[in-house]
Design a protein around this nucleic acid. Structure first.
Lengths: 345, 345
DNA sequence: CACCTCAATGCAATCGATTACAGTCGAGTT
DNA sequence: AACTCGACTGTAATCGATTGCATTGAGGTG
């Protein structure tokens, strides 16, 4: 159970700990003969560096921390996977934390990551406002990149997609399919992502002359249940519009399900769109039209930014980057294809 | 950017580092006046312990490592969430790793966790045989609990569900619904979970006199795609049996989808069952009948075992525990309820 | 042959927090 | 008054790996 230390390897090889360290970390000059002896001894004893001790000395851990609002949301899960993959190429590891969509838990996680001397942090903040203190404070102490969502009024690097451009594509597509009225189902405006998506939705709706009744903008949270509840409410309060634009796929899946449960045919009577392109969106009945986020690109950019920030020490930190990538619309069966003759033109 | 150390706090408070440490870690006697001074100084400077240094000294990190085959599989994701929750109550944190279903990556992760001095490891091994060396080796060095799946021939603690009992429930239910023949769609027999589930399936099928054609046992992997492919193959090779018993929900979702795509009505013409009860199983069309795993219980037991193992030092490690919990069948719409008169009796 | 250079190696300090041990001091005992 | 006890506090060692500086010695130069 007790671990093998560098001192034991040194003794066995008949050299000093300094030499062992030089061999094992490939720094400094060591004669071939000694190198062989040391490696031999290390292998025999099954030596493994103590990452903790090394980290203390080097104040580098080769570990990046990541905090997401919810690990059960498939979008974040696959984002995490992409990030881990990107980090792997740099020989770094990922320390993943779930904030349970609670800014207080999020703050604890961030503090804990900082205390662990991670080399940098990637965070998708849980709340557009309440997450600010913790995020800003953490960003002051070490490299930090916000992903997908961002906190209002913070100055850190950010990588995400252009929600407004995405919504323009969605609306154009729905319009092509004959939609003349639409509802928006999102989360409370406490996430930048909902804000942006709603802004894009509203602007393009106006331009295309698609009607959006004030009481058909429903805000809850990112969950299947909320999608179901929102549709139930719409139906109870006067019926469905031509299209339901949802701020994420979970909501859209719930919405679709509720439509069908209430006897509405998707997409003939109501078109439904999602956002994120999680795996299950393709399995729904009907398969969901949604916005595909380029997760690998997002992850790669985030990792690149972190690496850059680690190099540029304190003083010389330049202005922060805001990288927004262009997402693509994935047309499936929950909307009407352009070819389909619209119902009422 | 540079961190505040205990020495700076000590200087500011006009005491020694020892005293500061005693105050901050609530150990040893310190007069009220001094305590106040120290806390004051610590707050003023925004002191935060350096977890790395503490870990080096104490050789405890209050961190548990967890390795799962795939973080994109919703079952594991929710298991992770449960574990994190259970650990939180003990003031411990979770370091999560994804093995990408590859025993080699898994081995690297395990080694890396050990090098980081985690206090214990929870692993759901990727492979029933190839994972052995790494798992056993790691278990020899620190407390380790296997979750859900386990590796053949290892002697470590394990927590999971009684797959055989679960399959008995599944088969009884299908039989009640009139099934007289069935196919099994699972992963290759490289996971203990598939093995156990198949064993339970086969045994109960015999007892109930349900026909299982040898070529209707299809083994692939835990994925939606495989479920789809397997059904396509069954149809091509002579048609579907009365029931499709799937080793997990992803497979079942794919299978259901394929059935419908080929014009088979579920559950009237084919009954389908899953395993795990992931969230999306309830959203499928039709909603999936599946086996619910008591994730919170599993997680709690695992955490308890780890804590126990950490206490009992080396020598006195008793025999290893194998805890199997009883899962429950969740009947939804992809099978025929008992009441429904079977088609052909 | 005296002296210099440079590769190879060892010594010891260092990272930051914890803690065994020792010293100080005031109050209580005899 | 001398002594004991215990509450506080400080000194310094410790965890394990890394690294600046010093040392050694072989080979080269004038």
């Amino acid at each position: 159970m007790q671990r093998v230390t560098i001192a034991q390897v040194a003794e066995r090889a008949g050299v000093s700990t300094a030499t062992v360290s030089r061999v094992l970390s490939r720094r400094g000059q060591v004669s071939a003969a000694v190198e062989r002896k040391v490696r031999r001894a290390a292998d025999d004893l099954g030596y493994q560096v103590n990452v903790i001790a090394r980290a203390l000395r080097n104040s580098r851990t080769d570990t990046v921390g990541m905090v997401v609002p919810s690990i059960t949301n498939p979008f974040f899960t696959s984002l995490v996977e992409s990030v881990e993959h990107a980090l792997g190429k740099e020989g770094k590891e990922l320390f993943l934390c779930d904030a349970r969509s609670d800014p207080r838990i999020e703050a604890r996680r961030l503090a804990s990551l900082a205390a662990r001397n991670v080399d940098g942090i990637i965070v998708s903040p849980s709340h557009g406002v309440d997450s600010r203190p913790a995020v800003q404070q953490t960003a002051d102490r070490l490299p930090l990149v916000q992903l997908d969502r961002f906190v209002d009024g913070t100055t850190t690097d950010w990588v995400g997609v252009d929600d407004v451009a995405a919504m323009r594509q969605v609306m154009d597509h729905l319009h092509d399919g004959g939609a003349r009225s639409a509802a928006f189902i999102g989360s409370l405006m406490t996430h930048s992502s909902t804000e942006q998506r709603f802004a894009g939705f509203r602007r393009r709706a106006e331009e295309l002359n698609i009607e959006v009744k004030p009481d058909q903008v429903l805000l809850g949270d990112y969950s299947v249940e909320w999608g179901e509840a929102a549709v139930a409410r719409l139906i109870a309060e006067g019926g469905l519009p031509d299209a339901l634009v949802c701020a994420d796929d979970l909501i859209a899946l719930g919405a679709t399900r509720a439509c069908r449960a209430h006897g509405f045919v998707v997409p003939q009577q109501v078109q439904v769109t999602g956002y994120d392109d999680i795996e299950f969106s393709r399995l729904a009945e009907p398969a969901l039209t949604t916005v595909h986020q380029p997760r690998d690109r997002i992850a790669a950019e985030a990792v690149r930014l972190l690496a850059a920030a680690s190099l540029a020490k304190d003083a010389e930190r330049g202005p922060h980057a805001r990288i927004s990538l262009v997402p693509t619309l994935v047309v499936r069966d929950s909307t009407r294809a352009t070819q389909t003759p619209p119902d009422r033109i």
